[in-house]
Design a protein around this nucleic acid. Structure first.
Lengths: 190, 190
DNA sequence: CCCGCTCGTTTGTGATCACATTCCTGTCAT
DNA sequence: ATGACAGGAATGTGATCACAAACGAGCGGG
């Protein structure tokens, strides 16, 4: 999810088991769960790799984010108090630091934390779970996407989200999230 | 998914293993995968039951269907040829038979087949997978919902979907799907 | 120089087992 | 009659093992 692994990296159950100091059974369980969610891809012979997403698949996952996240934000809006917006500002500051240090994994992690912080307020656990499934699938690819991104406009959309939250502007909030979520896609297509 | 199990039914790994003539390992794997998707719920001690959904959760899942399924239908629309609509008519006929025979599981299964047939045309596997996750979560509850439903208006929305598909009417299609998907919810609330 | 084959190694799968925890049933005291 | 309690049965978990399939390195032939 956090882009710590590149796409196409092969993983083995025994390797994971050794890495975490457990036996094969729990490692296999985790792998199969993640594969079922699309976070890992299983070759026909059962071999496991991080997914190598086709452009069409990326477009589809971005469309899902663009569909689900504005809805979550909209549901969070009525409950967005000042303390929440404060917290989001703080997270945004951390994002800026990670960008400055060029720490991609930390940037992705904190960026998702920003979004998750909003969505937790929506009190919609099933929706949040679906969105996180999408994040999981996009993880390894996001690293590549963000590595080539110019850094200046990374935070613009987050500022728009915060402004819309503060103003209680529901259509603006949906628009800002849609823009934030789909910006990565445009880079890829271009 | 097909409403063959009531909500709250307890399941055991050994029981499932015996039922399918396998050992505990694959049975456990399947249970954990389904639990991860929300299709089964795990008690704190690891015990497994079919989920007992709260009204809020049902509302949320219905909202997800209402969000995702019109999108899928809209993506399928440009590729909806006559042969597809023919096929959907046939499926609709089978639905009528199951309703007449009061076979709830078969009705649910065929109803989902109707929807899935449309969505397969959308060429959006990730979206379809998410929708099926939602179906999976709603499965045991759908049985209860449909048991109390009046039978007359069950097919009305499907006819509206078919008409919109044939006419290439995109807004009408989205509306018809939204209505079809959320009709069950209204019963529950009332 | 390239392609195909072979054999040893790696890997996933399913089965079985020991163990700790939980659940349930039957009993007994109040 | 009701509640607590104790003991046995049932359950999930993680580990280990045997086996078949797949992979890959190395070799030989064209």
């Amino acid at each position: 999810m956090y882009g710590e692994l590149d796409p196409g990296v092969p993983l083995t159950i025994r390797g994971i088991a050794a890495e975490f100091g457990v036996s094969m059974t729990p490692a296999r369980e985790a792998v199969r769960r993640l594969a079922a969610e699309g976070a890992l891809s299983l070759s026909s012979s059962g071999r496991v790799t991080t997914p190598n997403l086709s452009p069409e698949r990326i477009e589809e996952l971005a469309a899902l984010r663009a569909l689900l996240e504005p809805e979550l934000a909209s549901r969070a809006l009525p409950r967005a108090h000042m303390a929440l917006i404060e917290r989001l500002h703080t997270i945004n500051g951390r994002i800026a630091e990670h960008v400055a240090k060029n720490d991609i994994a930390a940037y992705i992690r904190t960026n998702l934390e920003f979004h998750r912080t909003i969505y937790l307020r929506a009190q919609a656990p099933a929706m949040l779970a679906l969105v996180e499934t999408v994040w999981l699938q996009l993880g390894p690819t996001m690293r590549m996407l963000y590595m080539t991104r110019t850094r200046t406009d990374l935070q613009r959309h987050h500022r728009m989200i915060l402004a819309a939250l503060a103003a209680g502007d529901e259509p603006g909030l949906r628009l800002a999230l849609r823009a934030d979520v789909t910006q990565g896609l445009k880079m890829l297509v271009g």
